[in-house]
């Protein structure tokens, strides 16, 4: 459904020295620098897949989304989405895609949502019955029926985001790009939008690319993630595999029947297995290298009055952050 190969994008930016002198100088001379936003990235995404595109600010996520949505041209490389080259912007291609940007309003600010949807009905040439059915479904699922007649600019951020989602999905696109769809929303709205995206995927099987800084979005919505760092893909695979392949530690937690007998001595003993994480007085928490887990568990059971023990994977967000910063090691 989505296939792109060796996509590169280089921006030419001009650098201006600070101050009045710099501004005056830039009237006559400009220093240009080349910024390589994407460096030969390739991937393939199938129908029904939600792929999380993860990376730090400026890593190249949005640039890639803009290229795949046909908004900007790449410097080199090729892409095939639904048998179209996105940046040729064929009308039939545009009818089958949607881009939702959490940071940018796309609906007409002065119009009530209902009017915006009617306009989109004509733009996408959606038959009346289909439009009514889809709108009913989307409006009831996202619970925004009462807000339909208010101007977009008068809605809260969460309500506006829900309207943006409805607007983007009215024509039932086969490709959906979600750029930070839950940014700035409260927990209830975040959950509602996540649930809705999963329902939509189940019903329509679109290929989706999601970029988000909220690890919860990624964990709850995506089985596959692509980690992008300085314009290059440093990981492309199953989210679950990241743990086994890149998690070097596990968190061992033990609940004790009584307080630690000698705190200083116990901490010294525990630190022979790994990094001791400060916790409550009845709880031991140690970040232990994976290979040392059996030994550490057995020693702790032997030396402390343990009533419960738990061994957890390192937080996925921490691993992804590490990969974003350092790349594959």
């Amino acid at each position: 459904m989505i296939k792109f190969q060796d996509i590169s994008k280089t921006f030419k930016l001009h650098q201006k020295e600070p101050g009045l002198k710099g501004s005056f100088k830039s009237l006559f001379f400009r220093k240009w620098i080349l910024k390589h936003a994407l460096k030969k990235v390739s991937a393939e995404i199938k129908a029904g897949e939600i792929v999380g595109l993860v990376g730090a600010n400026g890593a190249g996520k949005t640039t890639l989304v803009k290229i795949l949505a046909g908004i900007i041209h790449p410097t080199s490389g090729s892409a095939n989405i639904l048998d179209y080259t996105p940046w040729n912007r064929h009308t039939e291609f545009r009818k089958q895609i949607a881009l939702i940007m959490g940071q940018k309003a796309q609906l007409w600010w002065d119009l009530p949502a209902a009017d915006c949807f009617l306009l989109l009905k004509e733009i996408y040439r959606i038959p009346k019955t289909k439009f009514n059915n889809t709108l009913d479904y989307l409006v009831s699922t996202l619970q925004v029926k009462d807000q339909l007649k208010f101007q977009i600019r008068r809605l809260s951020l969460g309500e506006r985001m829900k309207m943006e989602l409805i607007a983007a999905l009215l024509h039932e696109p086969k490709i959906v790009f979600l750029d930070e769809p839950t940014i700035g929303l409260d927990l209830t709205s975040q959950n509602a939008i996540r649930r809705f995206i999963l329902d939509y995927r189940k019903a329509h099987k679109p290929a989706m690319i999601l970029t988000s800084h909220y690890m919860e979005d990624i964990e709850k919505l995506c089985r596959r993630i692509i980690i992008i760092r300085n314009g290059e893909f440093v990981y492309d695979g199953q989210l679950s595999k990241i743990l086994s392949e890149h998690s070097q530690y596990k968190i061992l937690t033990a609940k004790l029947a009584s307080e630690l007998p000698n705190t200083q001595q116990s901490t010294k003993f525990l630190s022979t297995f790994g990094e001791v994480i400060p916790s409550e007085i009845h709880i031991l928490k140690v970040k232990v290298p994976r290979r040392k887990i059996p030994e550490a568990a057995s020693e702790i059971l032997k030396n402390f009055p343990v009533i419960d023990m738990n061994i957890e994977e390192e937080e996925i967000g921490v691993i992804i952050e590490k990969l974003q910063q350092q790349g594959l090691t």
């Binding site: 908004i71 545009r94 881009l99 796309q106």
Partner: peptide
């Protein structure tokens, strides 16, 4: 300001 992007997405 980049608002053109929204219009580039519409099939019109």
């Amino acid at each position: 300001d980049g608002s053109l992007s929204c219009y580039l997405m519409y099939p019109i």
